[in-house]
């Protein structure tokens, strides 16, 4: 299977995605494609709707009855926002890493096996090992799998959370400011892990850190007040953005 071909098929297709909340409109008609083999960074000031955008992709927005979501999202051609879709099945194919590491109050092994325990899947040990290796955490915890997950450091915990989603072998990986509060070494390890993972997955990385977007992603999307202002290959966006608003944000005129 050739991996570095020009990928013409979008793994994730988003059409006219809009979200309304109790205080007004949060997302305005987002239109975006994300491909397998790329890391898409999503940048924008606080309150731009980045987190809400991510949460639409795995229908975590279902959990908030005050949100109204319209539009279409297709994963590998299959619609995900229609009523016939079971959000539970969707979430097993779309993994999410949150901005604060949330190890479940269990052992490391139990954390990793948690997703599998929901589906009664076998081959747990193999998948756990390969997920930990993909998150660059295997060497550090391979002898400690029975220890409580909270014994790990912050950076290790976040890599654990990454591995936890990878055990499910998702097609899309969503990361919401995963490195906020982490030390630079852990940040680097996670960014390296993503570079490996993007081969098989579509990776969307929301980040507040413009520099991280610049170094760790292939394409970057700029979100402002719920609107997708601009999306372009990362180098292009950072050296020659088309929109003034993008240029202003990148140069730190507002944040």
């Amino acid at each position: 299977m050739k991996v570095d071909d020009v990928v013409t098929e979008a793994r994730l297709r988003i059409e006219s995605l809009s979200v309304w909340g109790t205080r007004g409109q949060i997302l305005r008609g987002i239109r975006l494609d994300v491909h397998r083999g790329e890391i898409l960074a999503v940048i924008g000031p606080a309150g731009a709707g980045k987190t809400t955008f991510l949460r639409c992709l795995n229908r975590m927005t279902d959990l908030d009855p005050g949100l109204l979501v319209t539009g279409d999202i297709f994963i590998d051609g299959h619609p995900t926002l229609t009523p016939e879709v079971d959000a539970v099945l969707l979430r097993r194919k779309v993994g999410m890493v949150f901005s604060v590491p949330v190890p479940l109050p269990m052992t490391i092994r139990q954390n990793l096996a948690f997703g599998l325990s929901l589906t009664g899947n076998g081959r747990a040990a193999e998948r756990i090992e390969s997920a930990l290796k993909a998150a660059f955490l295997w060497d550090e915890v391979k002898d400690r799998l029975h220890e409580p997950a909270r014994n790990l450091s912050g950076g290790q915990q976040q890599r654990l959370c990454l591995a936890r989603t990878l055990v499910m072998e998702p097609d899309v990986l969503l990361l919401d400011e995963p490195c906020s509060g982490l030390d630079p070494i852990s940040t680097r390890k996670i960014e390296e892990a993503l570079q490996e993972l993007k081969r098989d997955l579509a990776v969307i990385l929301v980040t507040n850190n413009v520099k991280q977007a610049a170094r760790a992603s292939d394409r970057t999307a700029f979100l402002l007040f719920g609107e997708l202002v601009e999306v372009a290959p990362t180098d292009e966006l950072f050296t020659n953005p088309r929109e003034t608003r993008t240029r202003d944000y990148i140069e730190g005129r507002f944040g």
Binding site: N58, V100, L104, F114, G115
Partner: peptide
């Protein structure tokens, strides 16, 4: 029980009862 635990469980594909 922190709400974040519930969110993590949901995001991994748990049903409410699970």
């Amino acid at each position: 029980v922190p709400q974040s635990y519930r969110e993590v469980a949901y995001s991994l594909g748990a049903t409410r009862w699970q």
